[in-house]
Design a protein around this nucleic acid. Structure first.
Length: 319
DNA sequence: AAGTTTGTCAACCGCCGGTGG
DNA sequence: ACCACCGGCGGTTGACAAACT
């Protein structure tokens, strides 16, 4: 026997909400609040709707300060970065975007942003079968570059470029709590292309902060031989540095090798408030996973229910 | 102009975890 | 400890619109 339905399905209306229903719900909540019980709210508000339906309608459409319409590049960037790091945890992602709902973000990802991600797969797959790195280093031959790189100067940021994760020291989450990120698409991607670079999820390879020796590293790795025109400018324009070093599995530092890092190099965004917020999110996730002791608090600007991280971050200009 | 395909997004479904009795 | 209820969440669906043939 299954779970009892949350409402009498036979006596509730389904489908799109009419303006009259919207008005009833809005007026009721504005005058009385939700009363802490969505199940009984429809009856009180004289609506022939399921409580859950009312809740959804309010949260996704009727509540104040909802932002509809086009997502900005900045929002796309945040969504992609967060998605790559924590997966499809839309409510958490939504908590980082003022006025956006988890449903909105989910739809936006599924209809637009995901395609950008999928578009990366074909060229990545070629690296899966690439010959050992020594070939390139010994002969100074340039490996085939993804079209993405060769056209870098004309591309806008997709948010799906590989990004670094903070060190495992600061984020034990990566070492100890794999389940938290098991849903990451990048993790799935890694499963499919096991030799590809992964800086997401539970992958142990991470990159350290740039020490400014980029030019030297670039030469040592032979980057200058196949650095596409405009690539450096692209990195600069998009606030990315080429990462110089990685952390080996044993914890030691080492330069990235083509064999291990099929992208040849990987990006490292300049320190931004988002990096910091990501770290805060990780920590909150860790806490929320190990103890449910109020790691989240209510974001009253969004909804009485939406979670918001308690830690106040200092937001600085992205640019 | 009509039919078909594709894209978008609001809404639904059902699972899960928290909570209180 | 168990159970029922409820809210929250993410995956999915389906209606509608736009684009294409």
């Amino acid at each position: 026997m299954g779970r009892a339905p949350c409402c009498d399905k036979a006596n509730v209306k389904k489908g799109p909400w009419s303006p009259e229903e919207d008005s009833k719900l809005k007026n009721y909540i504005e005058n009385h609040g939700t009363g802490g019980n969505w199940i009984t709210l429809p009856q009180k508000a004289d609506l022939k709707r399921c409580g859950k339906s009312c809740r959804l309608r309010w949260l996704n459409y009727l509540r104040p300060n909802i932002k509809h319409g086009e997502f900005s590049d900045e929002e796309d960037r945040i969504i992609c970065t967060l998605y790559a790091n924590i997966g499809s945890r839309w409510s958490i992602i939504a908590s980082q975007l003022q006025g956006r709902t988890d449903n909105d973000i989910k739809n936006h990802w599924n209809t637009k942003l995901k395609k950008k991600f999928m578009g990366l797969l074909p060229f990545e797959s070629q690296y899966h079968q690439r010959k050992p790195s020594s070939q390139y280093f010994s002969t100074q031959q340039s490996p085939p570059l993804p079209s993405y790189y060769t056209h870098a100067s004309t591309l806008s940021f997709t948010g799906l470029e590989p990004i670094p994760v903070p060190s495992t020291n600061s984020l034990p989450f990566y070492q100890n709590q794999e389940s938290l990120v098991s849903v990451s698409p990048m993790q799935q991607y890694h499963d499919h292309y096991p030799n590809s670079l992964q800086v997401f999820g539970s992958e142990v390879s991470t990159c350290s902060s740039s020490d400014g020796s980029y030019s030297q590293v670039k030469q040592e790795m032979g980057f200058h031989n196949y650095m596409p025109k405009g690539f450096e400018e692209y990195c600069s324009n998009n606030k990315f540095l080429l990462s110089d070093k990685g952390i080996n599995n044993d914890g030691s530092e080492g330069f990235n090798q083509w064999e291990d890092k099929p992208n040849g190099c990987f990006f490292q965004p300049l320190q931004t408030h988002l990096d910091y917020e990501l770290e805060v999110i990780y920590k909150q996730l860790i806490n929320s996973n190990s103890c449910n002791n109020g790691c989240f608090s209510v974001d009253e600007n969004k909804t009485e229910e939406k979670v918001m991280y308690t830690t106040t971050t200092t937001t600085t200009e992205w640019n």
